[in-house]
Design a protein around this nucleic acid. Structure first.
Length: 394
DNA sequence: AGGTCCCGCCACGCC
DNA sequence: GGCGTGGCGGGACCT
């Protein structure tokens, strides 16, 4: 195929900001999971109402194609909703619980409970949600996930018209079914092989579907990476056969902030904020930042960003502000006890912390990300601490 | 060697 | 035809 990474690296020699190890191409730095993490850190903040795909691609320094992958998965779990060509409503991490709830209800309604154990295949898991209709006022994806969900049977697959066929294979739908699998199964662990069998129904199916299997498993890898990066699932191994499998963590585990702020990173740290600039298009310099600036992760740009980001909704309506995130206490800083201190004192503690605690990262992108979290903290603090007893903060 | 998954070709549908 | 979208699978990279 292509000349491999060597060629890639030579063509990227103009990517000066990677100069320390010009030939240190690493897949991990370009993984979908990492891209997803960066995507979320870039947009999951107050004041972001919509996301433009071109803008995202440019800011993250990746090809558009990769943005589609991320967006499709995130859309299927309620983080985004399509608004128009090239533009999505930003719902935020806070949209996940609702989406998960709906997915579970759908799965239950469709009678897919225990389908995993039954080894049944599961075209029944298909739903026909059409995510193209979104009501920003309710934050719901109303589509036609309604009653008349069509469950295409394997045997009828070939008769689907192109549009249906295409949608039926979409990454978003596959994501939803993958999630439903976790929501419905009693098994603690699900391997991608098993998921593929169930979601693809490749047992006693026609050969063309089986041939398709490898491709679909690849998609499952994509999906799993994204979900892992958000800590919705966690990669582990079956105890018996040591085969890789995934454990459902759910929204309680879903805080990329958590991963970032806590120094006890989960397994996904290998995909978490890396040690180098990431997601740089090494190949064609199409949207690579050639200015010598670090990869653009400066989130403040978002709000300055012209018409794309109207500033009128500073009130976070669906972003992280509505979600209880993981520990914000930076490591090594004693937590404020809720006893024996006055409220005012605590306010000062946290204020001083927020303004003075500045861990130093060598990596500039990390430093900038940290700045982002500082800003997020400040915003959150003002909003929450301003109207609730400070004992709540811990 | 088998598992993982990046990358980009190209089909599709809309304008 | 141009463009946005995204399915798909080759084959590079990782373990």
């Amino acid at each position: 195929m292509e000349g491999g990474s060597t060629e890639r690296m030579s063509s990227m020699s103009s990517g000066l900001f990677l100069e320390p190890r010009l030939h240190s191409y690493s897949r991990k730095q370009k993984s979908l999971g990492l891209l997803c993490t960066n995507f979320l850190s870039l947009y999951d903040r107050d004041g972001v109402d919509t996301v433009g795909l071109d803008d995202a691609a440019a800011r993250l320094g990746v090809e558009r194609r990769r943005i589609y992958d991320i967006v499709n998965v995130l859309e299927s779990i309620g983080v985004l909703a399509r608004k128009a060509k090239n533009r999505y409503y930003w719902i935020g991490i806070g949209g996940i619980p609702k989406a998960l709830h709906e997915l579970k209800e759908e799965a239950l309604k469709d009678g897919n409970l225990n389908i995993f154990e039954s080894g049944n295949h599961a075209r029944g898991l298909e739903d026909n949600e059409d995510e193209r209709s979104f009501d920003p006022t309710t934050g719901t994806s109303e589509g036609k996930s309604s009653p008349s969900s069509v469950f295409p049977k394997i045997s009828s697959l070939s008769k689907l018209d192109n549009a249906d066929n295409r949608r039926e294979k979409s990454l978003g739908l596959l994501t939803q079914n993958f999630v439903k699998l976790f929501l419905c199964t009693k098994s603690e662990l699900v391997s991608l092989d098993e998921a593929a069998k169930i979601l693809l129904g490749d047992v006693n199916s026609s050969s063309h579907i089986r041939n398709n299997s490898a491709a679909k498993v690849r998609r499952l890898y994509d999906i799993a990476n994204v979900l892992s990066s958000m800590n919705l699932i966690q990669k582990t191994h079956h105890t018996e056969n040591r085969k890789p499998a995934f454990r459902w963590l759910g929204f309680s585990g879903c805080s990329y902030e958590k991963t970032f702020m806590a120094t006890g990173p989960l397994q996904s740290m290998k995909r978490a904020f890396g040690a180098d600039i990431t997601n740089v298009d090494c190949k064609r310099n199409k949207m690579t930042n050639l200015t010598g600036e670090p990869n653009q992760m400066k989130c403040e740009d978002i709000e300055n960003g012209s018409e794309d980001y109207p500033a009128q909704h500073q009130q976070a309506k669906h972003t992280a502000a509505g979600v209880v995130f993981g520990p914000f206490t930076p490591m090594g800083i004693p937590k404020v006890s809720d006893k024996g201190k006055t409220t005012v004192k605590k306010v000062q503690d946290w204020e001083s912390l927020a303004s003075s605690y500045r861990p130093q990262y060598r990596n500039q992108a990390l430093s900038e990300l940290f700045e982002h979290y500082v800003e997020a903290w400040k915003t959150w603090y003002v909003e929450v601490a301003g109207k609730q007893p400070l004992q709540q903060i811990s």
